[in-house]
């Protein structure tokens, strides 16, 4: 049987808004990072689903999903490095203490 596309899209939407909710409400930098990953993965699912259902003969969507995973990995690496540096500087990764951007 073929699972209807809506199911996947609902999943990805739910996943995305969980990410958004986490990004808005969490105060810990690592949690924020995880939330970002959730949002990115929701996007990847969308790429794969639209490719499979709309243009099964093409591969662009899958390729973009792969790019997305690669980018997410790279971004995680950079973000972790930043978080570590932040911790070294202010001995905290609580977001309320990060107000340097104001200036």
């Amino acid at each position: 049987m073929i699972i209807p596309a809506q199911y996947f899209l609902i999943l990805s939407a739910v996943l995305f808004f969980i990410g958004v909710f986490g990004f808005f409400t969490r105060r810990n930098l690592v949690s924020l990072l995880i939330s970002t990953e959730l949002m990115l993965n929701a996007v990847d699912i969308n790429f794969a689903v639209f490719n499979a259902y709309c243009h099964p003969q093409l591969l662009e969507g899958y390729v973009f999903a792969l790019f997305g995973i690669g980018i997410a990995a790279a971004e995680t690496a950079v973000a972790i490095a930043i978080i570590i540096n932040v911790y070294r500087n202010i001995h905290s990764i609580h977001i309320k203490k990060l107000r340097e951007l104001k200036h």
Partner: peptide, 14 residues
């Protein structure tokens, strides 16, 4: 509006 709080920026953005 310019609080330096990334999360509030992102709320506005969204």
């Amino acid at each position: 509006l310019q609080s330096g709080n990334v999360q509030s920026y992102s709320v506005w953005f969204l």
